[in-house]
């Protein structure tokens, strides 16, 4: 088991290295390959109307005229060990993990990211709890009552849930519950939990429900399909042949097998959301990582986009790692291979 974990951790680190190389390639190698000069790259750092001297300064400071492989080495080193951009009297130390500075406000990217993380985490965690409980239980009941009116109603709602985009359900819920009925506050009212827990909660209710609705619909369908498949397995027949009560057959034998793959998907989905719930955050104007990256893309803020990409990749790889290890704990067949 220890060897297994060590193997997976090494694989995860390698994965991150690959992702960083790919990200670097997308943002630096491809533009250069398409004919962009170091000066052209540098002009994006210093603004549109910069003087040639300022551009040359940026090329020097950012080492944009180095061979790309050296630049990548510096990029990777910045993430791992930090980077010193000081040039002469201008001091600019960027501690690890360094993703450089935002074009828009010259703030270091990493602290900005950390600043945005609590909002994203609040959103993801609340929604995840909601959709896991709702989706899985609806899926189980639907499978066990297959073909009944209850099953059909649940699956119709679920189909709507997976088909309707977040910005639609989000805006509808805002207009009904916030602007018409006034039960919940409208968009852009997010408050940190440490500042005002009540306001934090109120501002997040609608985003939680909106985000959870989509995922709950997805999970209900997944769980139902998994449960139906499991109930047809030979070992379920064996459990019945032993004389087990049907309730025990379902809870002890069928659920165990159905929920294991769901757990995997759950881990990955949460990991994905921690890298920014882009649509939900922008619909409700929640200042999370997703909102940050949308604004950065609009503002051509390359270092921030790059930082968020790596940040999101980190969470996905981490989630993968945790899920792999958990899977080995719950499924004895995995440990061998």
């Amino acid at each position: 088991m220890v060897a297994f974990i060590v193997r997976r951790v090494i694989a995860a680190v390698l994965m991150l290295a690959v992702v960083s190389a790919a990200t670097f390639a997308i943002f630096f190698l491809i533009p250069r390959a398409l004919g962009q000069t170091p000066e052209g790259m540098a002009s994006r750092y210093v603004g549109r109307d910069a003087t040639p001297e300022a551009i040359q300064g940026a090329v020097k400071r950012l080492h944009l005229d180095d061979p790309l492989i050296v630049q990548y080495g510096r990029f990777a080193k910045g993430i791992v060990a930090g980077e010193d951009y000081s040039l002469g009297p201008r001091k600019a130390e960027c501690p690890a993990p360094c993703f450089g500075y935002s074009f828009n406000n010259n703030q270091p990217v990493w602290p900005t990211l950390l600043d945005r993380l609590p909002a994203t985490m609040s959103l993801a965690a609340g929604a995840a709890i909601l959709w896991l409980i709702a989706g899985v239980s609806i899926g189980i009941v639907s499978a066990l009552r297959r073909g009944t009116a209850l099953d059909r109603a649940a699956m119709t709602v679920a189909l709507a849930g997976v088909s309707l985009p977040i910005y639609f359900t989000g805006l509808v819920s805002l207009s009904v519950f916030a602007y018409t009925l006034g039960i919940f506050p409208g968009g852009g009212t997010y408050t940190g939990i440490s500042e005002n827990p009540v306001a934090w909660f109120q501002a997040l209710v609608l985003p939680w429900i909106t985000l959870a609705f989509l995922y709950a619909a997805l999970y209900a369908r997944l769980t139902r399909a998994g449960m139906l498949e499991t109930m047809g397995e030979d070992y379920i027949r064996t459990a019945r042949a032993k004389g087990l009560k049907e309730s025990t057959v379902v809870t002890k034998h069928a659920l165990r097998a159905t929920l294991t793959p769901i757990l995997t998907i759950f881990g990955l989905d949460v990991g994905l959301l921690l890298g920014g719930a882009v649509l939900t955050e922008s619909t409700f104007s929640i200042p999370g990582v997703g909102k940050l990256v949308i604004d950065a893309i609009r503002g051509n803020d390359l270092p921030v986009v790059l930082g968020v990409t790596m940040f999101a990749a980190f969470f996905i790889v981490l989630a993968n790692l945790i899920v792999d290890i958990l899977y080995a704990v719950v499924d004895p067949r995995v440990r061998l291979s």
Binding site: Y235, T238, A239, K242, H253, T260, V330, P332
Partner: peptide, 17 residues
């Protein structure tokens, strides 16, 4: 207890977990 059964494919007939 009174009646029991042995199935064809013992791998799929036993719970893998």
């Amino acid at each position: 207890k009174k009646m029991a059964m042995i199935f064809q494919d013992p791998l799929s007939s036993m719970h893998p977990y």
